[in-house]
Design a protein around this nucleic acid. Structure first.
Lengths: 256, 256
DNA sequence: GCGTTTCGTTCGGGTGGGCCGAACGAACGT
DNA sequence: ACGTTCGTTCGGCCCACCCGAACGAAACGC
């Protein structure tokens, strides 16, 4: 009765269902049994059994008559990012960078062909956007992502850029050749701009974090509205500060 | 062939196995198929199938010939704590508090009878301890936990303190009556001390975060070594600052 | 106050798939 | 070149996952 057919052989259906439920709860903040059963196309009793199991394990908690995500995921998430040397190396330095620039800063690593923010520092002028810790983004639409693409292996880059380049704004670079040209420029000067390529009205400056053996660990950026990110400040001073911070973080990451 | 027997009726075994694998990876940073199969008492092929499924979902990633936790957990963990109004309310204020006191600060909420740190601010004098984001602690062994116990419903307190009170140091309050007396004191003066009750050589000052309708949302604390946490500073000045911060956070949490 | 709806939960029964053991292939290290 | 150990694949058995139906509780409207 499943409409799928996308079952790779030798995979566990129950696990997929459990995580499907978890993700449903994540996307709705909290969910009830019937709602989940309807949305996922499973029976109420099945949804109930999964939730009972997840609750017993501590991964979901009851909130009145609904279920919410348990804080055990916080522990898992922390372990996941602690693996990355870049995380420890960037913490203090990013705070300094954000203070100096006065705009939001973020640290990104690549996973499964997408960029994941593992650390984020808010600036004084708190500007709400949709990016949180753990948010994933298309690499070609951000300054952090382009920094990464510019400095990773060509082989890996081809794997990542294999498919269609999604277009998020009118300025998104969705042509592969144009993107390669942009990456060459970034590779040459050592940092990347983002001029409203992901969100209209937002600009950013990013730079790669390189280990001492030239392998790329991830990248960092600061981002703010076009009203403040402009002129000499945006084109030379901020890039100077970002690349300097990236150098320091790279060094700290290699000696950890 | 399972040695357990602890299967509550109507729960999904495959889900338990999958999360068992995830937790094994967490505890070992990275694990291989055979290692997991041995430690969990399952066959290699079963472990393989679970890992294949988890990898397909993006919750584990291959690292050479081992598996590590994927950053998808970071997203889930962030959503789990974002549910708590206390998290947003405490961010800026805790940083200020830590700067003023000069010692590490943490924010705790209760889940399943244990305390979970959802935010932590390191101080200048970086002191390494074993507590991270997502760490769980016994409530009766910390200043945050005792603050919570002192101000939550009596009914809830009885549920939580039902079992044995684990003893972590010679100073841990492991007697129920003594603990109740301590809680009464805390309730009266509005804040809690921790004098080497969890880790020898560490002291802390904690205070509850109360919503305007007197319900408790969690608690905060600052903690440092006994060499610095002493005298008038520890006994009156720090408590003053902690309770003041707690008041502000409580107000911010109710109007969010 | 009573019908109505919708919630979460429990209960069996059927069968699909999860689990295992054995075999295979590759990568080391000696 | 050998032995060991890794990850992976392949069949088959039988258990447990999934479902549908029935139950109990709570919240609604008339």
């Amino acid at each position: 009765m499943n409409t799928d057919g996308n079952n790779a052989a030798g995979t566990i259906g129950a696990t997929k269902t459990s995580f499907g439920i978890v993700e449903h709860i994540r996307d709705h903040d909290a969910s009830g049994v019937s709602e989940i059963a309807n949305d996922l196309g499973i029976s109420k009793s099945t949804a109930h059994n999964h939730l009972k199991t997840l609750a017993e394990l501590g991964y979901v908690v009851r909130q009145g008559d609904e279920y919410a995500l348990g804080l055990k995921f916080l522990d898992l998430g922390d372990h996941a990012r602690t693996r990355h040397a870049l995380y420890h190396a960037s913490i203090g330095e990013m705070d300094d960078l954000v203070e100096a620039v006065g705009e939001r800063g973020q640290v990104m690593v690549e996973e499964n062909g997408r960029g994941v923010y593992i650390y984020q520092v808010k600036s004084e002028q708190g500007l709400q956007t949709d990016s949180h810790i753990g948010t994933t983004v298309d690499l070609h639409t951000t300054s952090v992502g382009k920094s990464y693409l510019a400095f990773c292996d060509e082989e890996r880059r081809n794997e990542i850029l294999d498919g269609e380049l999604t277009r998020l704004t009118t300025k998104t670079i969705d042509d592969r050749d144009a993107l390669e040209a942009e990456l060459a420029t970034i590779r040459e000067r050592g940092y990347a701009f983002n001029d409203e390529e992901r969100i209209t009205g937002m600009r950013a400056v990013g730079a790669p974090i390189l280990s001492d053996d030239e392998t790329i660990l991830g990248s960092i950026s600061v981002s703010g509205p076009t009203t403040r990110m402009k002129g000499e400040w945006y084109h030379t001073e901020v890039p100077e500060m970002v690349t300097q911070a990236a150098r320091v973080i790279g060094i700290r990451a290699t000696y950890s």
